[in-house]
Design a protein around this nucleic acid. Structure first.
Length: 227
DNA sequence: GCGACAG
DNA sequence: ATCTTGTCGC
């Protein structure tokens, strides 16, 4: 059975997936991978959690950089239309995430997303998808690999090894904490791998996940109790 | 053909 | 992602 059928969710219409795939192929041409040119002072982190089978709670946390103090935290609760299918995560989560983003009073210079950037079958992980929609620099920080091969990085914080896919380095497997499973960092949009990796490590203070996404995940759990 | 598969 | 207890380590 298809991979997604292992999840307790309805099967997506093959015709719909074909349409979404085509949509990603078109967006692919607009992706810009380059060293960002700005003064990083405000960085945001976002994450989503699900309630039941068709409701989603998305959170955006705004932090100062490099002090990493929480300046804002907003959320939006809504419905989801599509089931989870590897490679199409953005179509399930992005709509609600964008609504949460609109609630930020102050906009960030950069957004860290929980998921992959270009380390995706069609270079359109949710971090890249959001970056294109918001025309904003984004970096993806995922907890698991989606595509590509890599060698296990050394066990100490800061160690990393390239994630290769189809002959290209699309990300870095980065150890953000000693003796703890590494994270997968990749540029989303208006960003390059070196900068993305540097920022992810700079934001990894005391935990495996960098502060932006770690706090977004934390507050998602907190707000979830209120809905 | 047989696995692998973000959240 | 979510369902779930106690437990090992900093």
């Amino acid at each position: 059975m298809p991979y997604y059928r292992r999840f307790d969710q309805p099967a997506p219409d093959p015709a719909i997936l074909a349409r979404l795939t085509e949509q990603q192929r078109q967006m692919q041409e607009r992706i810009i991978i380059q060293k960002p040119d700005f003064d990083l002072r405000l960085i945001a982190g976002c994450d989503s959690s699900f309630v039941g089978e068709d409701h989603i709670l998305s959170v955006f946390v705004l932090l100062s950089y490099p002090s990493l103090e929480v300046l804002e935290k907003v959320w939006h609760y809504g419905e989801v239309e599509l089931p989870y299918v590897p490679g199409f995560l953005s179509f399930r989560e992005a709509p609600n995430l964008l609504k949460a983003y609109e609630k930020l009073h102050q906009k960030p210079d950069l957004i860290m997303v929980d998921g992959h950037g270009i380390s995706h079958p069609r270079r359109l992980g949710i971090a890249t998808h959001l970056g294109l929609h918001l025309n904003k620099p984004t970096i993806g920080v995922a907890k698991k690999v989606l595509v590509g091969r890599y060698k296990e990085p050394a066990l100490h914080k800061g160690a990393l090894s390239p994630l290769e896919y189809k002959g290209e380095v699309v990300g870095n497997v980065l150890r953000t904490k000693d003796n703890v499973k590494p994270v997968f960092v990749s540029p989303g949009h208006l960003m390059d791998l070196q900068f993305a990796t540097q920022i992810a490590l700079a934001c990894a203070v005391k935990h495996k996940l960098p502060e932006p996404t770690r706090l977004a995940d934390h507050f998602a759990a907190v707000f979830k109790k209120l809905v």
